[in-house]
């Protein structure tokens, strides 16, 4: 049963990745990343109880739901409202191509993760493969999107992958390190949001192509 739930969560994470790859609106992307954040936060609850303290698990789950599911999406929504990026910016690669890419990467990581030696560490090999797929998809989003909000979301997907991997090797690493990483992430996002506001102030848009040229 526990294993089934883990598989379900991993699949939903993969589907939300594909959703992020296929959606053009920042509002929809923010919803997607919030959903993914909440899903991830449930993962610590499945850790084998003999290896970590139950209190640690609960604190981690609650904190990450708050940060990934509520606070960061809230900030992102606020910044999009401020800058009103209404225009869809066309990505360097089309949405359909991105979605096919996501599908192939997800399936590829399912396939290869079974052959890697460290899979015995994880709570489920499925989670590890979802994490690998997320990592690649996160980088892909950062690389192919012009909209700065979409790039931040790509960064978050990447970070989420790290979170899953961290949980996977939790038995050999204290959980408070995870908590520390979470807080770092929050600080990072706040700085990015401030930066986006400034970029918008200077360039009047958030197309990162404008950043190629130095602004006096």
């Amino acid at each position: 049963m526990q294993n089934n739930l883990l598989i379900l969560i991993s699949l939903l994470i993969i589907l939300s990745n594909i959703f992020l790859l296929g959606s053009s609106r920042t509002g929809a992307m923010i919803r997607g990343i919030a959903f993914q954040g909440v899903l991830l936060s449930l993962l610590p609850l499945f850790l084998p109880s003999e290896s970590v303290r139950i209190l640690d698990i609960i604190i981690l789950a609650v904190l990450s739901i708050a940060i990934k599911g509520v606070i960061i999406p809230h900030y992102l929504r606020k910044v999009t409202r401020n800058i009103r990026t209404k225009k869809e910016l066309h990505p360097y690669l089309g949405y359909s191509v991105s979605v096919i890419f996501g599908l192939l990467v997800s399936y590829g990581s399912f396939y290869f993760i079974g052959k890697l030696p460290f899979m015995y560490l994880s709570i489920s090999p499925f989670n590890t493969s979802a994490a690998f797929a997320s990592m690649i998809i996160g980088m892909f989003i950062i690389a192919t999107r012009r909209n700065i909000i979409a790039q931040i979301i790509g960064y978050l997907v990447f970070e989420n992958a790290g979170f899953i991997l961290g949980i996977s090797i939790a038995s050999s690493q204290p959980l408070f390190i995870e908590i520390g990483i979470l807080l770092d992430l929050l600080a990072g996002i706040v700085i990015m949001v401030v930066a986006v506001n400034h970029i918008h102030l200077y360039f009047d848009n958030v197309n990162t192509d404008s950043l190629e040229r130095l602004n006096k």
Binding site: I7, I14, I18, S106, Y107, F110, G114, S129
Partner: peptide, 11 residues
Amino acid sequence: LGFFLSFSKIF
């Protein structure tokens, strides 16, 4: 995705 997974061995 469903179709692929119905073939997958680790699933």
